[in-house]
């Protein structure tokens, strides 16, 4: 009984459609599962690479290593820079995300907010507000639709290698994503409180800041925290393009075949994410309680 209902329901159909799409993709890409068996050289690399997993490096592996300092010091520096770039980018992204998110939300213009004395004036003000909102949403979509690594490549072409461009490359799409989610959260925080503050004569900006923002704040904070974790990962990857973050050193070690060093970097990144995970779950409990 249960199965039959489940197949005929909408979500069952969607699930089947999804599986079919997967099969179609497999066919269109002309994939061969046999390619998943690593080629001769690959098998060798795989053995060595995974063999190194349980023995991450604690000192420099390469015999030719001439740089000063210890290996763990370098790992720490790489992690430090990764976090620093992510934090700087998130700082920018939060500021712009809040601004854009406010304009893109419906909370500041809907209903009889505009105090024109005539109906015509009220309507035209509302039309302007709606088009401002639509334009902002489009702008946010554009910011988001270009991946941070592509922004990085664009900036590399335009500016050359510069750490500020790395931060900007991260900040732009993240500002877009934050703005989108913030605006949705602000709109969903539908509550009687903003109306009451309006009824006691507060201006629209104060209604927003005191009535609506605090309500949406816990959700926004939790999401921002999650995005910070993503930003750390992205910041690490930006190293592959020559910025001095974790990815840079990871790539270097991999290309020098120092697999044990690669694993140390991977474990370091993993640890960082675990710390974030534990922290955010603790914060979430606080917010809910």
């Amino acid at each position: 009984m249960l199965e039959r209902r489940f197949i005929f329901e909408r979500r069952g159909q969607i699930a089947l459609l999804v599986l079919a799409a997967g099969a179609l993709a497999f066919q269109r890409l002309g994939l061969d599962p046999r390619d998943l068996v690593p080629h001769a050289g690959g098998a060798q690399i795989a053995r060595e690479f995974f063999g190194a997993a349980l023995r991450p490096a604690l000192t420099f592996e390469g015999a030719l290593e001439t740089s000063s300092g210890t290996f763990l010091g370098r790992v720490a520096l790489a992690l430090y820079r990764t976090v620093i770039f992510a934090a700087a980018a998130m700082g920018l992204a939060i500021v712009f995300g809040l601004g854009l998110g406010f304009v893109a939300s419906s909370s500041w213009w809907s209903r009889e907010r505009f105090g024109g004395r005539t109906v015509a004036r009220r309507l035209s003000l509302r039309a302007i507000a709606m088009s401002v909102q639509a334009a902002t949403r489009l702008f946010i979509a554009l910011l988001r639709s270009v991946h941070e690594l592509i922004w990085a490549v664009l900036f590399l072409a335009a500016f050359g290698l510069n750490t500020m461009s790395c931060v900007l490359a991260l900040a732009i799409p993240y500002a877009g994503t934050l703005a989108k989610v913030y605006s949705e959260m602000l709109d969903e925080a539908s509550d009687a409180a903003p109306g009451a503050l309006r009824d006691l004569g507060a201006s629209e900006l104060l209604v927003f800041l005191c009535g609506r923002l605090p309500r949406a704040m816990p959700d926004m904070a939790a999401y921002t925290f999650y995005r910070f974790e993503c930003a750390v990962r992205s910041s690490a990857v930006l190293g592959f393009f020559g910025y001095p973050t974790l990815g840079y050193y990871l790539k270097l070690s991999f290309e020098n075949l120092d697999y044990r060093e690669v694993w140390t970097y991977l474990y370091a990144l993993f640890l960082l994410v675990v710390v974030f995970e534990l922290w955010s779950s603790r914060l979430r409990n606080r917010f809910v309680a």
């Binding site: 998943l36 690959g42 690479f49 990962r233 990815g247 993993f270």
Partner: peptide
């Protein structure tokens, strides 16, 4: 599961590319 998602796609792809050679599989 945390381990799987802690490592970015880009790093996974970079590693798989060396193991499987060019093609769509590493990305997938």
């Amino acid at each position: 599961l945390v381990g799987l998602r802690a490592i970015p796609e880009f790093v996974w792809a970079f590693l798989f590319l060396a193991l499987f050679g060019p093609g769509a599989w590493p990305a997938i």
